[in-house]
Design a protein around this nucleic acid. Structure first.
Length: 803
RNA sequence: GCUGGUGUGGCGGAAUAGGUAGACGCAAGGGACUUAAAAUCCCUCGGGGGCAACCUCGUGCCGGUUCAAGUCCGGCCACCAGCACCA
């Protein structure tokens, strides 16, 4: 009899052997077929690993391990996204250098990951805070700068009142800081910006060439928010200027009964003298300025606004004079900051018109209710009315015709707009990559020379950010004051640092050649390894990291640095692991599970198995300690299987089909995120072995191989105890034969009028007539009346239809 | 409001292409072993009816297509996620 399964001995033993034997070292042999599996590298926080981390890591570890058994050269790397605010805040609070904090956190994370038995190639470990790494982050920034895609701009930014730092639009969630939950206000600051908008189309088109799960692709498309329409010039009555608007419905131009400008529109000041109710306008404008963008949209229900009395616009298609209003429902940051209002065919304009008693003119017929009752916004049906030369046309035809008309008269043109904004790239913080730019009064912004990279973070006395919005680096005179690389005159360094997203926007490239000091990675390594074959990560990164890194990668492709336009061939996403009570795990809720405790009490293999068995991989799942116990029980049954092994180099006759079915099922499920059913199939198979009380050597061997990617330690131990050759990690993945997955004798369902009445046993290749004859015999009592139809589905059922 | 997704036992969840609903696991109940407990093993486990073989209802709700619907179509409802005055 075998001893009881002791994970305390088995797991560290094999982790050491794998390390010693360099079991998972990625080969530099570029002639072998490659497979690049990637999980998002963690931010090494002070809290240590969370039980959420092992879910994606185990999933791709399974894929990586399986691929190795299938003969691929596998790259499955890990590293640290280590710049960032929490580390800096911790450093400030505890007066420890962020570098030290990072080092300690990384050590803890690494030990935790190691205890889970992941097959990462630790020789390729990277760290974004390493100067040898951020050398190339800065290098990419210089490329962007030289290509005109990085620029400095005075603009209102999202300012987190607690972190004292500017945020990208993507980092503001419901008006508060994504990180700390504090209110975000608008603040005008000079910021480095990246022109991601220039890549909007390429980022949309690129989605067609990759295999992303549907919801990720759609979310990215919605975030980029491409819309097609036209810009139209309205003249200001009695003035030289034109008021240009953007609309997606140029077909409704005849229905424009008033205009609305954003309260920030420059024409308001320009035509101050013409506006007779100036005091009222100023009051409204001040009121609007006080509100954050969030409040403005929160208060969306009730429209407000003020008419600019004395200023009127002329509709270019019918020369009608119409009033101009200002209202905060029109945003300065989208389109032209002004709109033509067509209340009959736009919900917002309709509400505004109703509130202020403005005329509503129907120009698209087909509305189910009069347009005085509700706006008619449907585009698919409807024919133009009250619209001069557009009358009788469909909406689509009218759009085309009016655009031609506007272009021929030079009073408008087709125009595409995006919701995507440029990326605010400055952070007024210490613990980030210094931006390698020098500002010279004569030469402007001058990039550092490539040979002067990396520009290392200097030591400072205090990491405290300042209330005036300057980075702690600004106080370091000796570092700030330099000579201009161009003219040699006195100049100052940029003191803002890069956001955390910088280092993670290209890290997958570095893994291919992590120690290269001549380039971010060699051309050969990039050509061989890229693109990433399978990238899994959190849904929360869809409009942040995932979009940013696609942008950088596409840019690097355009620069000839990387060999393919898209970085990730396949992207999947895992669901969150919730607490036992179904709520998000958090300290305050007291429902946090520490993976260290699970590894200690049940073992790494149990944790891995449980997290894969917990439910559908892409959906949220609640933690259950009882569920963990169930998986441990399964592994103990696996352990005890060693006492049932009998000689036999083949599968036994009664289990042959089941063996082939299981190989097929497990092989397929590991590829399609269905880890839970793969494990269920293995449990089902082991139940068969127990029912028989024995398992042949061949069956046992296959079983261990199939289970190995999920539970690598116990399978490696059992493999070695059974005297199988070598190690599981470099054995071969088992094969199945499609033909053998079908049993010789199958069970057919017998239905009468679609209802199950009996089952029959028949040979697998039974013909229709025999099957029907058997079925009629088995369900004879139920067949009353005339048989009108007989249906035979091979391998499935017989259905007798009687009347 | 818009976009995407999900609704199946006491619970987590299964069910290629429409073809025996509830795999696998958990919990629960009963039994064996034990002085006892834990562990382990065996049995039961969607509702209702029947001693039983069986019958009947049942995959959020209403209708439809089909020999056959958890799966397809039409119309609702609920929940989750993302976006949200983007003209």
């Amino acid at each position: 009899m075998a001893e009881l399964y002791n994970h305390h001995e088995v797991e560290p033993k094999w982790q050491k052997i794998w390390d010693d034997e360099k079991a998972f070292k990625t080969s530099d042999d570029f002639s072998k077929p490659k497979y690049y599996a990637l999980v998002e590298f963690p931010y090494p926080s002070g809290q240590g690993l969370h039980v959420g981390h092992p879910r994606p890591y185990t999933a791709l570890d399974i894929v990586a391990r399986k691929r190795r058994l299938q003969g691929y050269n596998v790259l499955y790397p890990m590293g640290w996204d280590a710049f960032g605010l929490p580390t800096e805040n911790y450093a400030i609070k505890n007066k420890i250098h962020p570098r030290i904090v990072t080092k300690n956190n990384v050590a803890r994370f690494k030990a935790q990951l190691h205890s889970l038995g992941y097959s990462f190639d630790w020789d390729r470990e990277i760290n974004t805070t390493d100067p040898g790494y951020y050398h190339w982050t800065q290098w990419i920034f210089l490329k962007l700068f030289n290509a005109g895609l990085a620029y400095k701009s005075e603009m209102p930014i999202n300012w987190c009142t607690s972190c004292k730092v500017g945020l990208a639009n993507e980092e503001v969630v419901n008006g508060v800081c994504e990180r700390c939950g504090s209110p975000v206000v608008r603040k005008v600051k000079s910021q480095w910006m990246l022109k991601i908008t220039e890549y909007a189309d390429k980022l949309i088109e690129g989605l067609d060439s990759v295999d992303y799960v549907e919801r990720i692709a759609t979310q990215q498309k919605n975030w980029i928010g491409k819309s097609r329409g036209a810009e139209v010039d309205f003249t200001l009555a009695g003035k030289e200027d034109k008021l240009t608007v953007y609309t997606t419905r140029p077909d409704t131009l005849f229905g424009a009964t008033y205009m609305v400008m954003s309260p920030e529109h420059p024409y308001i000041d320009k035509y101050k003298d013409a506006i007779s109710n100036w005091d009222e306008v100023v009051a409204y404008r001040e009121e609007a300025a006080k509100k954050s963008d969030f409040e403005r949209s929160e208060l969306a229900k009730d429209k407000t606004g003020v008419e600019l009395k004395g200023l009127r616009a002329v509709n270019p298609v019918n020369d009608t004079e119409i009033p101009i209003w200002i209202s905060d429902y029109v945003l300065m940051s989208y389109g032209t900051g002004a709109i033509m209002a067509v209340p009959a065919h736009d919900d917002r304009d309709w509400e505004f018109a109703k509130k202020f008693g403005l005329p509503i003119i129907e120009v698209v017929g087909g509305s189910p209710v009069p347009v005085t009752e509700a706006a008619f916004t449907v585009v698919a049906t409807g024919t133009l009315v009250n619209s001069g030369f557009l009358n009788g046309l469909s909406v689509a035809e009218a759009k085309e015709k009016i655009t031609e008309f506007l272009e021929s008269r030079k009073i408008g043109h087709a125009k595409v707009n995006y919701k995507l904004r440029d990326w605010v790239f400055s952070r007024q913080r210490y613990w980030g990559e210094p931006i390698p730019i020098i500002h010279c009064d004569c030469c402007g912004y001058v990039p550092l020379k490539e040979e002067d990279l990396p520009l290392e973070l200097p030591e400072v006395d205090s990491y405290m950010p300042t209330d005036n919005g300057e980075s702690p680096l600004a106080a370091m005179d000796s570092w700030v004051n330099v000579k201009c690389p161009k003219c040699g005159g006195p100049a100052k360094r940029e003191t803002d640092t890069m956001p955390q997203w910088a280092g993670s926007s290209w890290y997958f490239l570095r893994y291919t050649d992590p120690t290269n000091d001549k380039a971010l990675a060699s051309k050969e390594a990039l050509k061989y390894w890229m693109p990433v074959d399978w990238y899994n990560g959190g849904m929360e990164h869809t409009t942040l990291h995932l979009l940013y890194s696609r942008f950088w990668h596409r840019f690097l492709y355009d620069q000839g640095v990387v060999p393919c336009p898209e970085p990730y061939a396949k992207r999947t996403s895992h669901g969150m692991i919730l607490g036992e009570n179904g709520e998000k795990m958090s300290k305050s809720r007291g429902n946090v599970v520490n993976p260290d405790d699970i590894v200690r009490d049940y073992g790494a293999d149990t944790l891995r198995t449980y997290e894969m068995f917990i439910g559908a991989f892409d959906q949220a799942a609640s933690w259950s300690e009882d569920g963990v116990k169930g998986c441990r029980r399964f592994l103990e049954r696996v352990w005890k299987l060693q006492d049932m092994v009998t000689d036999g180099d083949t599968y036994s006759a009664d289990l042959e089909a089941k063996m082939h079915q299981t190989i097929k099922k497990v092989s397929g499920d590991f590829e399609t995120l269905k880890y839970n059913t793969a494990i269920a199939a293995l449990m089902s198979l082991i139940n068969e072995f127990y029912k028989k009380g024995s398992v042949t050597k061949a069956e046992y061997r296959t079983f261990l191989l199939l289970l190995n990617p999920v539970a690598p330690h116990i399978t490696e131990e059992l493999w070695s105890l059974s005297g199988f050759e070598g190690r599981v990690y470099n054995a071969q993945w088992p094969e199945y034969s499609e033909e053998k997955t079908i049993e010789d004798t199958i069970t057919l369902a017998v239905q009468v009028n679609g209802k199950l009445r009996a089952t029959i046993q028949a040979p697998k290749d039974v013909d229709k007539d025999t099957a029907i004859a058997l079925a009629k015999e088995a369900a004879a009592e139920k067949i009353t009346g005339t048989v009108v139809k007989e249906i035979f589905v091979p391998g499935r059922l017989v259905n007798i239809v009687v009347k």
